[in-house]
Design a protein around this nucleic acid. Structure first.
Lengths: 253, 253
DNA sequence: AGGGTTCCGTACGGAACCGTACCAACGGCG
DNA sequence: CGCCGTTGGTACGGTTCCGTACGGAACCCT
């Protein structure tokens, strides 16, 4: 479930970039550089400048909302299906005053200078199209998160989170602590420990000391709330199925 | 409540449109029509086409996420500070599969054909600028809602909702039932009744049979979570300060 | 006026989750 | 090898909120 090969060797391993034609990808290639990112690395601070954009390959990034008294809560996650730094698309050079972007699962991302990004965006319509479709998907993700946090249990939300992350890291095992996950979900660490323990006893996951392994993916989907599938379907609709980049869906004239 | 400053008779009473220069507003005028909208009127169905966009004057619109089993939950509200139908800006002609737009407080809105909107957007840079800034604000609103639903009490969220609505309707009294508000917040009707009862006994609001009056605005702000002020500040930052819509001391009841 | 509908107050048991706290196990490091 | 920070298991009382339910009061329509 890693890269979408079958493409002529120039695939980026990022669904957004790989949705472009080979020719467009070739044009984009000199503008980006593959880099490694460590856990909890902060990409943008609240209100900070957006100097670079990032297209994850196997890293996962959280968009967080910071609050006065509580730790920050996750608003959306970005992985190999999208990009980090979308505010640039809306013409802003800075983050919102309360928003933060942080690496949550370490890995590789393509880095692109924001100046280059703006230039390419204005020159290449296909690129603008796919970026705008991704913004719609991001919108949908955050919207779903609103309802999910209001209505669904901690255990359901844990499953949703694990599944979305699993889709994005390209590996069954990835580093994550209960403490960190509890902050993402806006709940107690103990609540996550309890849910995780239940999932482990059910044979769905395995974990210990900051490393988690997805054992029974299908089982996780059974326990997760509907939000996971809704989001996956919406991403597939807007960016094409995970494995086949090819044809952009209808919706642009 | 419309912009009273030296703008002659061409102000729209919508902060987004009124952020344009008088000349730009004059050019926009023939493209829009002022219409009345009733409570609970559906503007777009999930996955439905976006034929028109709406710029509220004193109406308030909810963007909702629909779920399988539960009633829809409010993702964001749109009033005289913005517009409804933002997906058009991202190049989509339809809503997301799970999203719905519904009038929540009846009133007037400027309607604009989506074809005209796209044309004007491509012609006039100032218009595109202000629309993109509004999209950032909408983004910030939904993000804040994620954290709010995860961390704050029903009473705090009620206050936040009432304050945001109060800012937008230009009147201290507006129609709203406990049942409706409970669905927006994703909680029981009884929970809203309890919170509302507390607020009434504290002398902050007054209500009955679907009509609510804000009595002590400052008191409401005290009880509300920080989310209200965060959102108001973000809107002011992106769209410019509001022209004192909701602060006239001792209005009519 | 009468009947139906909408809107709201309230109640009760139970579930979920919180705040806090303490402790054990593991692993990195000197 | 022993120390110590990190990670996770668990417990307990308290609170919030849920699901459900009943009834009364205000409004609407005929």
């Amino acid at each position: 479930m890693t890269t979408a090969s079958g493409d002529h060797g120039v695939a980026f391993g990022n669904r957004l970039l790989d949705a472009l034609s080979p020719a467009d990808r070739a044009r984009l290639r000199p503008e980006v550089a593959l880099e490694d990112f460590g856990m909890k690395q902060v990409l943008y601070r609240p209100g900070g400048r957006i100097d670079s954009l990032y297209f994850p390959v196997n890293a996962v990034v959280s968009i967080l909302t910071t609050l006065r008294d509580d730790p920050a809560v996750e608003v959306a996650t970005v992985g190999n299906e999208g990009m980090v730094g979308s505010h640039i698309v809306l013409g802003s050079e800075t983050m919102s005053v309360r928003e933060l972007c942080q690496v949550q699962v370490p890995g590789r991302m393509w880095r692109m200078d924001s100046g280059s990004f703006v230039r390419v965006l204005s020159e290449a319509d296909p690129f603008r199209d796919v970026v705008q479709r991704y913004l719609q998907a991001l919108f949908a993700q955050i919207s779903q998160q609103v309802a999910c946090n209001a209505l669904h249990s901690v255990e359901e939300r844990c499953c949703r989170w694990l599944l979305l992350t699993h889709d994005r890291v390209g590996s069954d095992t990835f580093p994550i602590t209960h403490e960190f996950l509890s902050q993402m979900l806006g709940v107690r660490r103990a609540s996550v420990s309890l849910a995780a323990s239940t999932l482990q006893q059910a044979g769905l996951i395995d974990y210990g000391r900051g490393r988690l392994t997805v054992v029974d993916r299908h089982g996780l989907e059974e326990v997760a709330c509907e939000c996971y599938r809704v989001l996956r379907d919406e991403f597939d609709r807007l960016l094409g199925p995970a494995d086949a980049p090819a044809d952009p869906p209808a919706g642009t004239a």
